[in-house]
Design a binder for these strands. Structure first.
Lengths: 178, 178
DNA sequence: TTGTATCCGGTACCCGGGTACAGGCTTACC
DNA sequence: GGTAAGCCTGTACCCGGGTACCGGATACAA
């Protein structure tokens, strides 16, 4: 597929029946792919740099032309990201998959192992959020209204010891607003 | 334990009874407070800049001397942080509390309202994590082993539509490793 | 008095995940 | 052939929450 696409793409010189290079093969321009995937075009280049997207073919003029399955790949990336994997991890996973079940080396675990680990992480995170939730509920129920007072009075039921632990997996704001 | 250690450290200028400026008043040096609270000393200055800690007294030489309740305050800050508030929010909450239930202006809500909002946020986050968890379980159960394949085959049960939504509150890595 | 441990301030850098901007070249369509 | 999109590269910046490093000043014990 991609082979054909590539060949046709660059070879658009002859300009035949079907019009423009990218178009003819079902190839996507970066803007189109970005739109289709709901990401910023810059993000595509960013992912490319990070090794999440393979370098696409180029037109003679140097414009990227993505094969259609790039969209599926992008969706997988986004899904994996949502599953809690960092971009580095996603890149590794994709690469590991590419190496195709063989030649293990070092800690190369397949998706299975990593997913299981993530699962444990998720459970921990969920449990932690429950702790937090409970604390919030208690604070609300107790009618706390001034943190500074909570600091010194005993009326405040905030479970400081419970809250003190674990910071680090907890609740980073995800920055990535649209 | 750190308390004792700290006390010993600065303690005893005149050796005997109670001694030194800072110590006499129960004041804490930045290092001591940092130790006691389990944070980096730099973090204290950072919090001060951010308005989370009031500017402490100084020795003649310009060294900070914190009142003992700074520790309690610091703990509250950390607790609030864990409750999902950003440092800016914590600062606001502390300030709002300081203004002491009166003179509302703009959207100044007390801790109550904000906590309730955070609670909703937490619930959303928990629900979202459950979605993710479920997806992970499915992927594991199905024996998926290659993300790239998942991208194109139909065998993979990853619920892309479900995963696609909501990104933004989800699962940012919390950066703040110790 | 001297020595060492802290602390000071300011500035720069880290992580993760992107975005934005500048200045120039390609493509597409009429 | 002209013109408007769109794309190219490179670099810099954003968020949130800290950390690290620097040269110099203080604090305190012996």
């Amino acid at each position: 597929m991609s082979t054909e696409a590539g060949a046709r793409t660059t070879g658009a010189q002859a300009a035949g029946t079907q019009a423009a290079g990218a178009r003819a093969t079902g190839g996507l321009r970066s803007g189109q792919l970005a739109d289709a995937a709901g990401v910023n075009p810059q993000t595509l280049r960013y992912y490319e740099r990070r090794g999440l997207l393979p370098e696409p073919e180029r037109t003679l003029g140097g414009h990227r032309v993505y094969p259609p399955d790039a969209l599926a790949l992008l969706r997988v990336v986004k899904a994996a990201q949502r599953l809690g994997f960092t971009l580095d991890e996603v890149a590794e996973l994709l690469e590991a998959g590419g190496r195709h079940h063989g030649t293990r080396r070092g800690d190369r675990d397949g998706f299975q192992a990593r997913a299981a680990a993530k699962l444990a992480e998720m459970d921990a995170r969920i449990a932690d959020l429950h702790v937090i939730r409970t604390a919030l509920v208690q604070a609300v129920d107790a009618g706390c209204d001034d943190l500074a007072v909570c600091a010194t009075s005993d009326c405040c039921p905030l479970p400081f010891p419970a809250l003190a632990r674990d910071r680090s997996q907890g609740g980073g704001a995800a920055s990535a607003g649209p």
